[in-house]
Design a protein around this nucleic acid. Structure first.
Lengths: 191, 191
DNA sequence: AATTATAATAAACATTGTGTTGGAAAACAA
DNA sequence: TTGTTTTCCAACACAATGTTTATTATAATT
């Protein structure tokens, strides 16, 4: 991987631009964030922006890709490299990571974010959490797709709400809740 | 409501524009759909567009509002006007309505759609399906929010997938599935 | 510290979509 | 048919886009 260690100026510039995007996307959807405004907020020349990114969407895509890579890193580094299933401890670790980068993840998971990030998360989850559903030959593929979509969308919603509220629960507690919601439905709680 | 019966020309124009939006949004997110392209596809003059809508988003908003009104109509017209809970029959009827307007709902529920529509659906559902959760004083508000978000996001995902695949299941069967997923989780199926 | 390489800047440019306008032509309702 | 309303057409100023050039500033290298 490109460990050529970017020029210091490049790092500073990119950081300023990325921070500005996250800041602006707390208020506006990506479509309403112009390159012009972005550069003004970051105090970076517009030509400089175009030297690094094609447009706002390209920028967002790169930020997302990095976040996905980090999540993947957390996944493979943990106990579950052998077991194709997300465990409460692993989910806890991911939640901690999300909390540490709260501003970023709020934006990525929010409705202001781009669809592709959620889709990537779905893909990651598909390869792990629910792989056993796929493996079960008693389930047809269509049903598996329903279950996966239901599960991942539900989870993302909970995590997004948690971040919006300032992470009032401990990661471990939320991981527990999510797991229960997934496998036992909403009824486990209130009945 | 406005039963003034619009001028025939207005009806034709609006219909053409709306169809064009749905068509274009199968490929691009709303942010990438320009008024110009919209009018070219609809074969309508750009000035005419601005006579009816402020911009693409205003147009989408109006389409959404109408869909929401229709759903509301289906809800209040049914047995559940007294019971604050979505029943399988009522959900079935809504699914039939969605299937009848498949192209439209695919767009509205997809990630290309606007967040506000999903939020409105969430709001509708909050007032009914899960009202009992709210009423239960043993549940704190934060937990209730988690459950609601989880449930609604999951449902929308399933319905969206169903529409994308060409509605291969009967509405009644899908309504049954969704209800089970909601209250018993994914485990009811594969184990 | 001096030299070389490269990144950021400023200014200008053509291009494109936006939103508005006024008048002519067309379609409607009566 | 007559009067009304809508659409169309052409033109407009305006703003953001993406590119290019020369110049300045900063970093990496020796």
């Amino acid at each position: 991987m490109e460990y050529k260690k970017e020029d210091r100026r490049v790092r500073i510039t990119k950081l300023a631009i990325r921070d500005s995007l996250v800041e602006l996307m707390r208020l506006h959807p990506i479509s309403k964030v112009s390159v012009k405004m972005l550069c003004e907020t970051a105090d970076v020349n517009r030509s400089t922006f175009y030297a690094h990114y094609a447009d706002q969407y390209d920028l967002l895509r790169q930020i997302q890709a990095e976040a996905v890579a980090d999540i993947k890193h957390h996944l493979t580094n943990k106990d579950l490299s052998q077991r194709a299933e997300i465990t409460v401890p692993a989910l806890t670790e991911i939640l901690q990571y999300a909390r540490d980068n709260r501003d970023l993840f709020r934006v990525l998971l929010s409705d202001n974010g781009d669809a592709s990030f959620r889709q990537e998360v779905v893909f990651l989850a598909q390869q792990r959490t629910i792989e056993k559903i796929r493996a079960d030959e008693h389930i047809d593929l269509r049903m598996a797709a329903y279950l996966e979509g239901f599960a991942v969308s539900g989870c993302i919603s909970v995590i997004g709400g948690w971040l919006d509220e300032g992470c009032p629960d401990e990661p471990a507690a939320l991981a527990e809740l999510i797991t229960k919601l997934l496998f036992q439905g909403v009824s486990w709680y209130y009945r």
